[in-house]
């Protein structure tokens, strides 16, 4: 069982959360010319690193806020979590 620290509610059990995937993927800017390659990279291409991964989680059975977490994909250790508008380095 993962214990995830919601930036709003504190540490809760994994069962309260839904996963949202890679948080480093950036949607191309709205109302700008987007090449097929840029769109392709945004929709489909993933690095899926072995080690530190910055990802989105949704506290769906709690405060319902989306936030970011940095987690190790081998040990599942969660290093830090941050609000959606905050950077994780």
């Amino acid at each position: 069982m993962l214990h995830i620290k919601c930036p709003y509610c504190g540490i809760r059990s994994q069962k309260e959360f839904a996963y949202g995937g890679d948080a480093t993927v950036k949607r191309p800017k709205l109302n700008s010319e987007v090449s097929d390659k840029e769109w392709d990279d945004f929709v489909y291409m993933r690095k899926s690193p072995r080690g530190k991964h910055t990802e989105l989680w949704h506290h769906i059975s709690g405060c319902r806020q989306w936030f970011k977490a940095q987690r190790d994909t081998v040990t599942h250790e969660i290093f830090k979590t941050a609000k959606i508008n905050e950077e994780i380095k």
Partner: peptide
């Protein structure tokens, strides 16, 4: 969630 662990969790 993304994982290379070759083991899983009980939930």
């Amino acid at each position: 969630y993304n994982s290379y662990a070759q083991r899983g969790n009980l939930p």
